[in-house]
């Protein structure tokens, strides 16, 4: 049987949103303050996934206006993802414990 994508509407979408919201809440809830900035930056990177949606929109563009907006969308989304990654990685790279004991 041919595979088709499930359409996520109504309550299915609501369930996804609800569970995702709880997940985000739980992960951040127990974080030490020293990681707040890297985590803000890390979550900033994760919403860079928007580039994937912009890609879809651009590939399905059929007018010059749509192509222009789509181009800008992919450009911005890629910037969000790549910039978010580099900055977060640079920050986290520096977290090292003292030699004598591990944190």
């Amino acid at each position: 049987m041919e595979y088709t994508t499930t359409i996520l509407t109504g309550f299915v979408a609501l369930y996804i949103f609800m569970l995702a919201a709880f997940t985000g809440f739980e992960i951040i809830g127990r974080v030490p303050a020293i990681l707040h900035t890297p985590l803000m930056s890390g979550s900033n990177f994760i919403h860079g996934i928007v580039v994937v949606g912009a890609l879809w929109a651009l590939l399905n563009a059929s007018t010059p206006l749509q192509q222009a907006i789509g181009f800008v969308g992919v450009l911005l989304g890629a910037g969000n993802a790549a910039g978010g990654y580099v900055v977060t990685e640079r920050m986290l790279e520096m977290f090292k414990p003292s030699d004598k004991k591990k944190g």
Binding site: A20, A21, G24, F25, I49, V50
Partner: peptide, 26 residues
């Protein structure tokens, strides 16, 4: 997350909503 719903894209829906709630708490 909302645009993910419009595009029927679960990756956007989940990542967006996780960041939406984590960011609110932060």
């Amino acid at each position: 997350g909302f645009e993910g719903y419009v595009l029927n894209n679960p990756a956007l829906m989940i990542a967006g909503m996780v960041v939406g709630s984590a960011g609110t708490l932060l």
